[in-house]
């Protein structure tokens, strides 16, 4: 039976289908457990917190694509959220400048890591202290307010399709076209696959790394803004768990740690899957203590399935 299916669908296709299928399985189970989530309102509630996670996951994906790892993205998103809830709300110009400056710092980090050949894990680990410290300085106590336009964007109620679904598709689509379909995107990914040959071909690896880090910073900032739009206020620790969620999301979506093998669509799907994993258990009426554990278990389950498929691939 299994081999018959294997003959019909190639393992490669099966592997590509794994992230959407896991998401679909999770969604169907949730619908079955709690039919009310099928409504427009239910879906909105179920999925809206997945948007900032998806943006942070895309940010992490850019870093992983050039064979680095960002352990500071959670603290960075927290900082951006704090700036959004304070400066961007009170003095928009200052807020925009601050966020743009942070994206610039990310580009410089990429340059530093590349030029001095530093381990990105350690540099970003150090930066996580810096971002958190700055967040505490900007917003010492939880509070602030979401700028009206972000708030109204995040609570948009378009007809028929809930906003989080439109946003997720838009994010995945834009990044997919930019990174996977464009000529420049191919060069960017090449820096993860074979930097030496890319350098021989006359491309500057330094500039590529800076671009990728800047893109990560940009999407990190968007994540912080989206988060504040949903929660209406911020605090310095608001998104610390995004660091681990974003790495897990990229891998869940079919990305690899090395070789520039990433998938923006997969990353968004992975992020949504992880966000839903929490809700899943609460609908099961299981102990809330096991919420985080469920995310770990789902991650392991999907990765185990991927190994099974790869083994099938190796046998042929």
């Amino acid at each position: 039976m299994a081999s018959q299916i294997g003959n019909l669908i190639s393992p490669r296709l099966l592997r590509a289908l794994l992230p959407p299928l896991s998401l679909a399985a999770l969604l169907v189970t949730i619908f079955w457990l709690q039919p009310r989530t099928q409504s427009y309102f239910g879906l909105n509630l179920l999925l809206n917190l997945a948007i900032p996670i998806a943006l942070a996951t895309i940010a992490q994906m850019f870093i992983l694509c050039v064979n680095e790892l960002d352990l500071s993205i959670g603290a960075f998103v927290s900082l951006c959220a704090c700036i959004t809830a304070t400066w961007l709300n009170d003095t928009p110009l200052l807020g925009v400048l601050a966020l743009a400056g942070l994206v610039g710092v990310y580009a410089l980090l990429g340059a530093l890591i590349h030029l001095r050949n530093l381990p990105s894990i350690v540099v970003t680990l150090g930066m996580s202290f810096v971002w958190l410290g700055l967040a505490v300085l900007v917003l010492p106590t939880p509070g602030g307010a979401a700028p009206g336009w972000i708030r109204s964007l995040m609570t948009l109620k378009p007809p028929l399709v809930p906003f989080p679904i439109i946003a997720a598709v838009a994010i995945a689509g834009v990044v997919h076209v930019g990174l996977m379909r464009s000529a420049f995107g191919t060069v960017l990914r090449g820096a993860g696959g074979n930097p030496a040959s890319l350098a021989r071909a006359g491309w500057s690896i330094l500039r590529i790394k800076m671009t990728m880090f800047a893109l990560a910073g940009f999407f990190g900032a968007l994540s912080g803004m989206a988060l504040v739009g949903l929660t209406t206020s911020a605090d310095a620790n608001i998104a610390l768990r995004y660091t681990l969620l974003s790495i897990a999301g990229v891998i869940l979506g079919g990305g690899e740690f090395v070789g520039g093998r990433v998938s923006p669509i997969g990353a968004v799907i992975g992020a949504v899957t992880l966000a839903l994993a929490g809700s899943f258990l609460s609908f099961l009426r299981l102990n809330p203590d096991w919420q985080i554990g469920a995310q770990g278990a789902i991650l392991i389950l999907v990765l185990a399935l991927r190994v099974l498929i790869s083994r099938g691939e190796a046998r042929r």
Binding site: A248, A294, G296, A297, I300, L303
Partner: peptide
């Protein structure tokens, strides 16, 4: 056995252990 990269393997298992501790 599952050939999961150590970062992800220890990360996902830590979620489960943390939950076990809370519980």
């Amino acid at each position: 056995l599952l050939r999961i990269p150590p970062i992800i393997a220890t990360l996902s298992s830590s979620f489960i252990f943390q939950s076990a501790a809370i519980w």
